[in-house]
Design a protein around this nucleic acid. Structure first.
Lengths: 134, 134
DNA sequence: GTACGTGCAAAGGTTTTGCATTACA
DNA sequence: TGTAATGCAAAACCTTTGCACGTAC
């Protein structure tokens, strides 16, 4: 676990449980997902605390958020550059660790200063393919 | 304008005004944006009608929706394959018409059947760069 | 005439906020 | 002890839905 104290963050039990839930998590959970998981061991946990903590982590660059599901925000503790693949049917999100060449020629930037990029792939996951008969 | 009648869609005045608002629109408007614009000429227009119409157009493949702004859905009548560039500051969305090679080797698909892809670029638009002193 | 669209209001779902209480440091 | 986090409830948004009425075809 990283040094959260150095960021001026107080290490409350609630935060520790949220952090341990995020640690190595590759499921791209929503706030609600994290709340459900953490509530089991920590029945007094408030959903607002989850949102607050996630927002704080984001502000400190310890957490990324993913805008790929139109219905809710997903979070991703994996800070390595990577891309996502979402199942159009069940909305499951998988990682794709491929480094694409996404250079944009200056004349196509329309004056924007480009700071980052992200590829989203859409598809059908193995489970949903089975269910629908491929 | 395309043949909406052939799709079994009734051409009401409300729909015609929404359609004309979308025609050639490269602003990636939200439902609210469209509602505001159309309401001026059509004060009785309901926001629900805008949502319903947009959903209907989407279902018939006449309109795409964009999941790039975490706060609200944007719509795009431009059905050509293209990518987007969003200003992290003002959330303005611009188009990028570049054809990237986004082939994913089979062993990286994790069993997904990939049906599409989309690149999102993040940056700062010219106006926001000026405001913040570059 | 009938099926579909409209408009209003209400509901649903996600995320944020205000505020008193609690607890880390 | 002082500052920041928690937890609850309420509010703020965006989006969807139910239903009575109206209208395109």
């Amino acid at each position: 676990m990283m040094k959260y104290k150095e960021l001026g963050l107080k290490l409350t039990p609630q935060r520790l449980s949220i952090l341990s839930c995020l640690e190595g998590n590759r499921d791209h959970p929503t706030a609600e997902d994290i709340y459900r998981k953490v509530s089991k061991k920590f029945p007094t946990m408030s959903l607002a605390t989850v949102y607050n903590t996630l927002e704080t982590l984001k502000r400190h660059g310890k957490l990324a958020s993913i805008t790929i599901d139109p219905d809710k925000k997903h979070f991703d503790p994996n800070l390595e550059k990577h891309h996502h693949l979402i199942c159009s049917s069940c909305k499951k999100i998988a990682d794709i660790h491929i480094d694409f060449d996404l250079a944009v020629p200056r004349e196509a930037t329309q004056g924007f200063q480009i700071t980052g990029s992200q590829v989203e792939f859409y598809g059908i996951c193995p489970e949903c393919r089975k269910k629908s008969g491929r």
